[in-house]
Nucleic acid binder design. Structure first.
Lengths: 246, 246
DNA sequence: CGAACTTTTGATATCACTCAAGGGACGTGG
DNA sequence: CCACGTCCCTTGAGTGATATCAAAAGTTCG
């Protein structure tokens, strides 16, 4: 069949990594993803303090969850890449506790809570896949806490790059060992709990060691095994073992 | 009615903060909580790498989620207090990505995935409440990332103590402004990304400033407003606004 | 009563931050 | 097309918060 003709829809790719989907499931997901809206970089998709307005699905580009501490310092708490969905159950909350902002130009789809309800009721495989994705998102968040709490600056950056490569590969957004990293050094700093100056020096370190190359926003990983070793990267938290296609 | 006779069941107390429960709901929850098992301190309730064995509900004592980075350093990623449940959907995963261990002597209940399925189907208010709890747990995890990524050591400890006081109050486990904190300084260090030596000095700081008092494992907060101010503590992430009883 | 763990305190080291200033890239308006 | 502002990157020098090392005293528990 067209089992091999992989779809370019990143959500379908991601879900099919976790659960088997019927033709009807795929059709439904394609329909949901139809008519994505282009959103400029640095646009808020949801704001802390405001009511959540439905679920957002990223189809192209990158966005992030972040918030500012009272002392003015900013923390990025997640990157949203193609195929990623902001929380399934967000409609249960009356107020966002963080902000979601695009990092690059994106194309996104807004999904109504009603559609979500419909999916959860009528498409059990999709529902299961989406719940798994939520669990993986949570595990990723925990790993980020480990990253900031336990690792040196070199390890932190290395770990982040390993994770991004794997996640982008899943959804067909990484060419071999390179991917687009449309973020500033300040963003990386806010992600890893470092300063921008130190991010710069750390990236230089990794480049001098022949681990990565950076040209503009294009990041190439030159030696993934060594980068993983440096980061202490164990991919179990991404739960690839759950992936049907293994 | 016995609206005022608050139950001592911490799960019911927590859920009733978020959703209205029927008598049948309460009865069902009491039945689930029946026959808790005593567990000694420092016992693993679930282990990284092993298959999850159902959902665990804490009724008394404290436990934590944690994992060890490849460099040997340990990170605690959540405290589980009475009324807390480990992830609802954990049964979807084939492998734990972190370990859950008791910090003190606990009494806990194991809930089978079948029971969870039954709850989600037959008790919509409980289901809604549990989903909300999961969202709050996630928001708390994000706040911990902010804590470690953005705050100074004094702010980190202060923030953690503010959070614990509020969470323990919800479930009736804090006397006014004091609560039991059955953790070592090393645990606090692994929670906040500091060293045990520095935790000690930071706690001394807070005590010298008249903000808290510590006697054995009993922690008393002497000046909550000033402690909150120091921490930059904003409680919105605990989503008290969603609480029916406000 | 000894072994293992935890707390406590002091002295020293270091990783990452702060401050500062110049240069490049990009967009906008004259 | 050039001038200008803004934002980001880059690099150096100095500082500081927190880690590391070490040792003694207290605590817990078998």
């Amino acid at each position: 069949m067209d089992q091999n003709a992989r779809t370019s829809n990143p959500l379908i790719r991601k879900l099919e990594g976790f659960v088997p989907l019927s033709a009807a499931d795929r059709f439904f997901l394609e329909r949901i993803s139809a008519g994505p809206r282009p959103i400029a970089a640095s646009t808020d998709l949801a704001r802390e303090g405001e009511a959540p307005n439905g679920v957002v699905l990223i189809l192209e580009g990158m966005a992030c969850r972040h918030k500012r501490a009272a002392n003015g310092s900013r923390q990025i708490m997640a990157y949203l890449v193609p195929g990623d969905l902001c929380d399934l159950d967000v409609a249960l909350l009356d107020q966002m506790d963080h902000t979601i902002t695009t990092l690059s130009d994106c194309s996104v789809v807004h999904i109504t809570p009603e559609t979500i309800t419909q999916v959860m009721k009528n498409h059990p495989q999709i529902a299961r896949g989406l719940r798994l994705c939520t669990l993986v998102d949570e595990a990723t968040l925990r790993e980020w806490l480990v990253n900031v709490g336990c690792r040196t600056s070199d390890e932190r950056i290395a770990h982040l790059l390993c994770e991004l490569l794997l996640r982008l590969r899943f959804v067909g957004k990484a060419m071999q060992d390179s991917f687009d990293l449309p973020v500033t050094q300040q963003d990386l700093a806010d992600t890893t709990g470092m300063t921008a100056v130190h991010v710069k020096r750390t990236m230089l370190n990794l480049q001098r060691q022949g681990l990565v190359a950076l040209a503009g926003t294009s990041l190439q990983i030159l030696d993934l095994p060594r980068l993983k070793a440096l980061a202490g990267f164990k991919e179990n938290y991404l739960h690839l073992g759950n992936r049907a296609a293994a």
